[in-house]
Structure formats: C-alpha cells, structure tokens
Amino acid sequence: MLDDRARMEAAKKEKVEQILAEFQLQEEDLKKVMRRMQKEMDRGLRLETHEEASVKMLPTYVRSTPEGSEVGDFLSLDLGGTNFRVMLVKVGEGEEGQWSVKTKHQMYSIPEDAMTGTAEMLFDYISECISDFLDKHQMKHKKLPLGFTFSFPVRHEDIDKGILLNWTKGFKASGAEGNNVVGLLRDAIKRRGDFEMDVVAMVNDTVATMISCYYEDHQCEVGMIVGTGCNACYMEEMQNVELVEGDEGRMCVNTEWGAFGDSGELDEFLLEYDRLVDESSANPGQQLYEKLIGGKYMGELVRLVLLRLVDENLLFHGEASEQLRTRGAFETRFVSQVESDTGDRKQIYNILSTLGLRPSTTDCDIVRRACESVSTRAAHMCSAGLAGVINRMRESRSEDVMRITVGVDGSVYKLHPSFKERFHASVRRLTPSCEITFIESEEGSGRGAALVSAVACKKACMLGQ
C-alpha cells in the first residue's frame, strides 16, 4: 500500500517536472537572447534605426563620474514606483581627507489618484512632500541643488532636461508624456511658492545606482535594477552614441532593455503563462523582457503555473481556492519566502493557508518547484541581457580580458534567497573573457542622484555659470 502511494507521488512529481521543464533555458538559448539583445542595442544607438529599435539606448548626458572633490548639501528625489523618497545628502571631506556622503531620508507613498490623475496632481503632491521634508529638517530658507531620480523612459536633451516617452509600472498621470519632466517639477514648486529649489540633474535609477557604486569602486561602469521592473545602464564610447554629437570619451546610456521583445525577438521563448500575464497587464505587448524578470510579474506567473497544475490534477487534489483564482493573489514576496523555507515546509504551508488552501507535504514541495522554475528562468533571462552589455563593452574597448564592476539594486536581487547566485553564475558562463565584480548599492537611487548633481554643480562652477 505504502509502495503504491510512494509510486503515485513519484509519478505525480515526474509529471510536474515535465510541465515545469518549459521554463528551462539551455545555454544556447541564452546565447541567442544575448546576441539578439546586442543587435537591438546597436539599432538603438544608431541614428537611422533608433526610432524602430525596441531597446532605445537613451543617452543620459552623464559623462563624468564623481571624483571626490564636490562638497555641499544636496536634496535628492526618487520616483520610480508607488513609494517616493526625499533625501538630504551631505557631501563633504571625511576623516583623513576621505570623501564622505551622509544621508537623511523619508519615504512617502503615492496615492492612487496622483498616479493615475493628471501630471499637475502628481507633481503638486511631490512638491508637497518636499515642503514637508524641508519643514522637518528646518531647511526651507536654503535654496538647495536638487537631483531627481526618475525611473521611467526619458529622452534627455541635457542633464536637466528630459522628455517622458511613456509611463510604465502602473503610472498613468495624463499630460506628462511628451513633456519635460524637470519643467513639470519646477512648475509645481513655483505653484507652491513656499520654498526654492535648483533642479540641476535628472537621472534614471540605473544611472543613480551606477554612480553610487562608483563611489565604492571606481571600476563600476554598469548599473542595473532588478526590482519591480528590470533595466540597466553602462558607459558607452561616445563615438557609438549617434544621437549625441561628439566622439570623445564616454557617456552613460540608459538601455531601457525592459522593452526588448516588443518587436518579436522573444516570441519563441514566451510561454502561455507569459501571454496571460501580458494580456492582463496595463501595457499589453510592451516591456516583454521586463515581464519575464521583474517583481511586478513574478508572483503572478507562479500563480498561473499553480492553476495549470491544479487543472492537471497534480496539486491540491485538483481544487483551487477562490483566493488562488484571484489575479495578483500570489505576491512576489511569497516566491522569495517559499524558496527561503528551511525544509520543514512550515513557511510554505503558512503562505498557502493564507490563500485558503490546506496543502499536503507533496503540495508544498511542488509549489516550491514552481517558484524555483519561474525565478530561475528570470535570473537566466536577466543574465543574457547583462552578458550582452558586458561583452559589447569588452569588444568596443578591444580588451582581451576586461575587469568590470556592476552596481545592482532592486528588491528581487536583494531579497530573493537564490536569485543573485543563479544570476551571477549564468552571467559568468556567458562572459568567459571578463572578470566581473557585483556590488549592491546602498540607498543607491538617492545618493547617486545627489552625486550626479554634485558633478553638475562642479561643472557649472568651472564653466562660470
């Protein structure tokens, strides 16, 4: 009897593995994704193909990295998701002549009506938060230079001027797309009239992360975010950046690689679950690469896999709870928690219980395998993109072996128990001629924006502006 049951459990697990095998990517698959990513990057950089390229390769006008001589107080704003952060950054000489960066910050959550109302409502709310922060720190009387981390696709015309191309991540505030974001912020500050600010720089969160990590390690020339969304930036040779005049030196390019796949480059790798996630998203047909990796989508992918296993009578005796059938019910943090389970399955059992399920031991094991399959594919897909960037940098610099540091931020990278190990191992397999160091950014977005502002202020002083 026991043997029969054991055989049935083994057969069930084997069927589960057959279904989950769809998520496995072979090294040849990853090399294919990497080569296609490089081709799209090239198209994004070139003037004649930029418009139709899915990977936009947006110039950021960040050319210099901090040298350690900029000092002063800077205000930093960070808008990239449902939370908005205001930070005071003091850049100065530390002990023994070292450079020191001290920060104080406060988080504000953005109400739904500000995210989806008008641009005026959104930026009025942001300036209200700045006003509140300055009151708390008794700094209303000071006109501070301000660095703005704005983590949406922007076409820069200068370091302090950028046109919002399109909202992502659930934002829909009308009247912002096609307009200068810094102008919208300046107008809102003017409307309030109770404080003055000098907006000197606007950067993407990947750029802010790279600059913040450069402060720790001067070989950091790539910034990457794996959180709600997924994106990367890197220092490109100016001669390859056709959208900006000049051939000397390097400029940081914001790849906006989340949109890779929007022209069909990933079609052969998309599964039924991916198509369902895409169809029910706020932007169907867009940001397809990001939807395979980002935390906004990972939990939902797992939920759809679990429903398939229920329908195949391989999980929960073929019956799903009402909660499990509800879109968004299986949160991405559950994926991390399930994979963090120590082996007694308590954590998995508790999560499934909150979803109205009474799982068996085998159910718990199957749910864990589903989570591992989805998150491992995410790590491997992400590795193909980064390997594409790094191999490109090595080739354009004609280096036999390139040493490089990548600064990384984002909740999936930082909080998932195995993502970074799987990701690092896969990147290294795909970049055999590179020695890569990964560092995690601390308060990256805010500190990085302030350091970019410090560079901009120093330049302005040198130019006598």
Rank of each mutant, 00 (worst) to 15 (best):
F123N: 11
R46N: 09
N283Q: 05
Y215L: 02
T60P: 00
Y297M: 14
Q219A: 15
T228P: 11
T149Y: 13
D3A: 03
S360L: 03
G178E: 07
L352F: 05
T437V: 12
K169G: 13
S441K: 08
H105D: 09
G175D: 08
G295M: 11
E96I: 10
C371G: 02
E256C: 15
A379H: 08
E399R: 10
L292R: 10
N391W: 14
V181S: 04
V101T: 07
C461E: 13
G261W: 05
Q98Y: 06
L45M: 03
K39A: 07
R192C: 02
A6S: 11
S426L: 07
E112P: 08
E242S: 03
G246H: 01
M107E: 06
A450S: 14
D158E: 10
I293H: 14
F74N: 01
A201F: 01
K90E: 06
T361E: 09
M235Q: 01
G299W: 03
C434Y: 10
E279R: 13
T49W: 11
N83G: 10
T332H: 13
G343L: 02
V181Y: 13
T116P: 10
I439L: 11
R447I: 07
S441V: 08
T354A: 09
K31F: 08
R345E: 06
G299L: 03
D113Q: 12
D113Y: 14
V222R: 00
T362N: 09
T209R: 03
G147N: 08
E9K: 15
M238R: 04
L415V: 09
T228Q: 12
V207H: 01
T354Y: 09
Y349M: 03
L270N: 04
L386H: 05
F171G: 10
N240E: 03
F260E: 00
L122M: 12
T342S: 03
Q347T: 08
L324C: 07
G249T: 01
Y108S: 04
S69P: 09
I366K: 04
E300Y: 01
E67H: 04
T118Y: 09
L288Q: 07
P66Q: 15
E443Y: 14
S340V: 02
L352N: 03
L292Y: 14
S131T: 07
R275G: 06
F171Y: 06
N179A: 13
F133T: 06
F152T: 12
E399F: 12
